[in-house]
Structure formats: structure tokens, C-alpha cells
């Protein structure tokens, strides 16, 4: 009999182990109680096994989030690996929930698990999708808002990957500015 090559037996290892989190907004519980770890994976095959098994973001209820973070990093500003960082933020209009949200989220996940930003991927902490009545958001979180070169590489590569037009720009905001803002707008540190 012809035996399959060893490549067909072995799962493809990822550079990092990743953890997928789910947030469901239940007002009777605390923020941390509403955040649940779904599963961890460190191979391409296990990533798809999880992805194919769960709801797409457009099917989630309002107030829900998915967060995919490197193992050991909690999806919150306060984590040591996040507290000096920030996020590339993409805001979607209501129509895009039907047209773009699920596709953008999948591309975001592929950028992360595939380490698409070369050496700059080391700055990536994770990604978050927020499903909200006013418009959904997808963000890539990075570890240090002062690492301009890595952040701009990630932002430009991300925009290209999503096939976004050159305008409007997408913007990067530090978690420090986001958490301390007094109005509805946060200072943009970088834009691409």
C-alpha cells in the first residue's frame, strides 16, 4: 500500500499558541465574569477546527466580543503585555455587518495565526471584534505604542490584507488614551 507522506500526518505548528475568548454582556455580572476562555490552539488544523465550530461575529448578539490573544496575554488593558500598548481600530457601519464583518474578522485571524507581519508580528498581542448596535469594531492590539516602525508595518499590512481603499485612513490609539478619554474621541497616534 502507498503510505501518505509524513506531512499528511503532522499538524502544522503555529509560531504561537493562541487563546480565543468570548465576552457576553450580562449586566448582572462583572466585566471579568462575562469574559470566558473558549479554547486554545497551536496548530493550523486546530485553529480551523475551532473556527469552523463557532458562530460568525455577525450572528452574535449586541454587546458580545471575540478576542484572540497570544497564550498568556489576557484581553484587557491591564495585562502587563498590553498596558503600554494600543490598537489599530477599524469601525464598521451597520451595513458592513452583513457585507464585511465576518470576512474582515477571518482575515484578521489569518494575519495573526499566520504571522503575516514578519518580525513586526512579535508586537501583536491579539485582536478583538466588538458587535455593537451603533456599529461593529475590529482591532489589532500591539504591545508598545512607542514602537512606531512595527506599528506602522502592521497597520499598512493589515489594510492591504483587507483590501481597504487608501481613504479613509485607519488609526492607532494607545490604550492609555482610550481608557482616560473624557469625550467620545480618542487621540490618534498613527494613521495609515
Amino acid at each position: 500500500p502507498v503510505l501518505p507522506s509524513s506531512d499528511e500526518y503532522i499538524k502544522h505548528p503555529l509560531q504561537n499558541k493562541w487563546a480565543l475568548w468570548y465576552f457576553k454582556n450580562d449586566k448582572s455580572k462583572s466585566w471579568t465574569e462575562n469574559l470566558r476562555l473558549i479554547s486554545k490552539f497551536d496548530t493550523v488544523e486546530d485553529f480551523w477546527a475551532l473556527y469552523n465550530h463557532i458562530q460568525q461575529p455577525s450572528k452574535l448578539g449586541f454587546g458580545c466580543d471575540y478576542c484572540l490573544f497570544k497564550d498568556g496575554i489576557k484581553p484587557m488593558w491591564e495585562d502587563d503585555r498590553n498596558k503600554l500598548g494600543g490598537r489599530w481600530l477599524m469601525t464598521l457601519n451597520k451595513q458592513q455587518r452583513h457585507n464585511d464583518l465576518d470576512r474582515y474578522w477571518m482575515e484578521t485571524l489569518l494575519c495573526l495565526v499566520g504571522e503575516s507581519f514578519d518580525e513586526s508580528s512579535e508586537d501583536v498581542c491579539g485582536a478583538v471584534v466588538n458587535v455593537r448596535p451603533k456599529g461593529d469594531k475590529i482591532a489589532i492590539w500591539t504591545s508598545n505604542c512607542q514602537n512606531r516602525d512595527a506599528i506602522v508595518t502592521i497597520g499598512a499590512g493589515y489594510k492591504e490584507r483587507l483590501c481597504l481603499p487608501s481613504k479613509p485612513l485607519i488609526s492607532y490609539q494607545s490604550h492609555d488614551d482610550t481608557s482616560s478619554k473624557s469625550g467620545s474621541t480618542t487621540k490618534n497616534m498613527y494613521s495609515v
Binding site: 499528511e8 503555529l14 509560531q15 493550523v44 495565526v113 499566520g114
Partner: peptide
């Protein structure tokens, strides 16, 4: 070696069941 996978490779694995 850094383990990088491009988009097409990853998508090609989506519906392949791993043998192990």
C-alpha cells in the same frame, strides 16, 4: 525558524481533517 503561513495555504487547510 519563524513559522509563517500565507493566506492561501491557511485557507487550503480549512476543510482538511488532520490525520492525527
Amino acid at each position: 525558524d519563524k513559522k509563517q503561513y500565507d493566506r492561501d495555504f491557511l485557507l487550503g487547510c480549512q476543510f482538511i481533517t488532520a490525520s492525527m
